[in-house]
Amino acid sequence: MTKMHMVKALNNALQQEMEADASIMVLGEDVGVNGGVFRVTEGLQEAFGKDRVVDTPLAESAIVGAAIGLAINGMRPVAEMQFSGFSYQAFAQIKQHAARIRQRSEGTFSAPLVIRAPSSGGIRALEHHSESPEAFFTHCQGLKVVMPSGPYDAKGLLIASIRDPDPVIFLEPKKIYRAFKEEVPEEPYTVPLGKAKVVSQGEQLTIISWGSMLKLCQKALLQLDQESGIELIDLRTIWPFDIDTIITSVKKTGRALIVHEAPRTAGMGAEIAARIQEQCLLHLEAPVIRVTGFDVPFPQFALEEHYLPNVTRILDGIQKVLEF
């Protein structure tokens, strides 16, 4: 075990997987010589050479499109979008091909690639650098959507994503890239895709969250007394999600709060709330409440703090559900 922040854990995952499997390559803008703008791919080009860690021209659609071709033809590409806000430039390739090639070819071809993208807000970045596009990508049926909330899961989920037979978009909450360290095993391990994690147990209320919002939820819980009885679930794989863990928990607590940074309307919280009422309405003691970003474009950074969910909003949400 070594204490690492998320950037190091992701780098470590890439390093070990590339050592173990020669078909894995990394491609993207500034990923080689510069080691990526957040240094997630630092040192990889020195270790594996310019043919396996490739600084591409500035063209997201071609990065993903080429990664699809590479993947169909036996390679295991890990493509980087410099920020998830620039994955839109590659949206057509993701939606039309990465997500559909398996079905279109009746399983003859598949595109087992990983698209990594620093995501979400909280670092006072320029416009388009703070997007939380998980709901868009959930609508790319055939694609898996993953978002870790800490270093340990980051390494295990990235390794699982690389080894997964399906295309995965791996959204990295950049606010917590270096915010805290966790014990991370030195050897490779996987955290299974499609499995949520019960972070803390309770009987009164279930909170479902992911990405950098998970830490925020934990911060909010610290302000409540220890007997508050709140069960916190980290969704981890946004799609296909682990509804069973959620339903089991809500059947026990009878109350649910969903916290995410992306806009509220048609966000993943809406889907989770719908499933809860479909599958355990009679267990519910209160409406399912969402604490989310507003239904507006992610603002330029002068207003960022007002956009992002905060501890007060989470505590208000908890109170609303508990006191209904």
Partner: peptide
Amino acid sequence: WAISTPRSKQT
């Protein structure tokens, strides 16, 4: 330059 990518690698 485009960040760290020199013109020679761009086209």
